[in-house]
Each structure stands twice: as structure tokens, then as C-alpha cells.
Design a protein around this nucleic acid. Structure first.
Length: 282
DNA sequence: AAAATGCTCAACCGCACGGAA
DNA sequence: TTTCCGTGCGGTTGAGCATTT
């Protein structure tokens, strides 16, 4: 963060490049950067396997791609992450989990690697601290749900005899978070889902809705296997919202939802069961 | 002042996915 | 349908710096 990469600080630190299998590994030199930059300017992004052949760079295609995307790309924004960006990262992480590339798409000029590093080095602690404070008044942490809570929710979702699977279209008015995708366009995403124990991607995410009265639990069944739902979530994300818009978004109710549901189990609660790919997003 | 510890961040690794052959 | 290849993503590593003891 805030590092002048044009001067290649790591090299200045004296970290030598490593040569292995005929390929350079480790820190990029200024000359390599220049060669790669020139190549991309001429030929555009992609075809990374050709870079080494065409330029003589002793770098793997992956390495070239990473270097370009993370450092050489002209619109890369360097420097400290602003408070609003930080806030956005936290919100998006709450919503998307460790989908760094998706989060990065919402922060123009920031890379997934940068955000990921920033999260692990800074934000994770902040969030944990705030959630531990939060937990003094609320019984469970907002973030990084425990396996226990996730497990308990799976149990709720799968085994509770009283469980009703709520159709989101009909429960939206009472929904604790704003619907971020148009129901009309994705009715299939809101059809009731039979509870099931599924070892694969079909595992459900079940979020407890705040009971309107009493302690009854009304799980909202969000099936991970329901592509349509995830498409819908992706629709929410697809290049529609940028920093300012998201920050202006009223997240109050959503945060409330997070603190009670998703934050405890929801999306992240499925971490041992990877979410469906968002790779076709954007 | 020196050692120990923690932090930052660039880069690598392995896996998954999608398209082409 | 299967295999191969290129690409993208998230997790992890490791070197150097900063801070603490």
C-alpha cells in the first residue's frame, strides 16, 4: 500500500530474482515491466502465453498476466485505501465473502490481490474487533461465522421438523434485507426449495429470519444449487453499482440482516461448500 | 543495541472453468 | 464425448520492513 512500484521496491530491498526451469521467478525488474507493458500496448490483453514467445521474457503466462493486472495496467490506483473504499470492502465482503475479484470490480482501480492483502492485514482485524464489541450486546459475531453456527444452521435447515421454506417473493415485504434483484425477472429463483442434505454444491444456505413474534425460526432457504438465484445475485452486482452508489445504498436493514443471519451463517456459513461460481459475472 | 515478533505485500501455486480441437 | 490448453481466482508463501521487548 502506498508503495512506489515503478521503482520496484522489492528489488531495492535486495530480493534477487529466482531462476528456475528457465523461467524467472520472483520480483519483476523494470526492464521486464517495460517489455510486458509495451507488448500489451501493442497487442492488447490476453494471449499471455504468447508474451514470452514474442518478447523473450522468461516469465510464465500466469506471471505476465498477474503482473499486468496488478501493477502495470494504466488504471491501477495506487496508494492508501480510503475510508469509503474500506467501508465498501467490508460491506461487499459481508455480502460476497472472499470473492476478491468481484469485490475488486466494485472498486475501480483496485485489484483483487490488493484488496485481499488489505483485508487480511487490516480489515479482518478491524471487523473482528468491531464484531466482538458488537457481540457484547449481541450474542454472536457478525463476521467470520464459526463452523458451529454454520453447522447449527445446516441442522436447522435440514432437520428441523417445523421448518418452512419461505418463498422469497411472498416474504419480501418482511424480508430483513432489501431484495437486490428483480423478482419478476427471476421468478425461478424464488420458488420454494425442498430441504435436503446435499454433499455437493446443492447445499443450502439457510438464513434465519428474525421472527416476527416469539422465538420461532423461519429459515429462508437459499439453495446454493439454485443457479438462478445466484444469477440473480450476480445481476445485482453486474456493473450496476459503483462505490458511490453502494455507499449511498441504505444498508441499515441489510446490516441488520447480516448481524443476525448471513453474518452468522448465511453465505459465509457455506464456506466449506464453495459457492457457485460467479465467474461469468461482469 | 540486539533479538524477537508482527506486519505488509508481491508473487507463486493449485484448482476450476470454459472454449477449442 | 473427451482431452487439452489458456485463463481466472483464491489461498498461501516468503522476503523485507517496522515495532516491540
Amino acid at each position: 500500500m502506498g508503495v512506489n512500484h515503478s521503482s520496484n521496491p522489492a528489488l531495492e530491498m535486495g530480493r534477487p530474482p529466482c531462476f528456475e526451469d528457465g523461467l524467472n521467478k520472483g520480483v519483476w525488474t523494470a526492464h521486464e515491466d517495460e517489455v510486458l507493458g509495451n507488448y500489451v500496448k501493442l497487442h492488447g490483453e490476453g494471449k499471455w502465453v504468447n508474451v514470452a514467445k514474442a518478447t523473450g521474457l522468461k516469465r510464465s503466462a500466469k506471471s505476465c498476466r498477474l503482473r499486468w493486472l496488478n501493477y502495470l495496467k494504466p488504471d491501477i490506483k495506487r496508494g492508501n485505501i480510503a475510508l469509503d473504499e474500506e467501508d465498501l470492502i467490508i460491506r461487499l465482503h459481508r455480502l460476497l465473502g472472499n470473492r476478491w475479484s468481484l469485490i475488486a470490480k466494485r472498486l475501480p482501480g483496485r485489484t483483487d490481490n490488493e484488496i485481499k492483502n488489505y483485508w487480511h492485514s487490516t480489515l479482518k482485524k478491524k471487523v473482528q474487533e468491531s464484531s466482538s464489541n458488537h457481540c457484547k450486546s449481541k450474542k454472536k459475531p457478525m463476521m467470520e461465522p464459526s463452523a458451529e453456527s454454520a453447522e447449527s444452521l445446516k441442522m436447522d435447515s435440514c432437520l428441523s421438523p417445523n421448518k418452512d421454506v419461505i418463498n422469497c417473493t411472498t416474504s419480501s415485504s418482511a424480508h430483513p434485507f432489501p431484495l437486490l434483484f428483480p423478482v419478476d425477472e427471476h421468478p425461478e429463483a424464488f420458488t420454494p426449495v425442498e430441504p435436503s442434505i446435499d454433499g455437493g454444491l446443492g447445499k443450502e444456505i439457510v438464513a434465519e429470519q428474525p421472527p416476527e413474534s416469539g422465538d420461532e425460526i423461519f429459515p429462508v432457504n437459499i439453495s446454493c444449487g439454485n443457479d438462478a438465484l445466484w444469477d440473480s445475485l450476480m445481476d445485482f452486482d453486474v456493473d450496476q453499482l459503483c462505490l458511490s452508489e453502494i455507499l449511498e445504498e441504505n444498508f441499515a436493514s441489510f446490516s441488520e440482516f447480516d448481524s443476525m443471519t448471513v453474518g452468522e451463517c448465511g453465505i459465509n456459513g457455506c464456506q466449506d461448500d464453495p459457492l457457485p461460481s460467479f465467474s461469468d459475472l461482469g
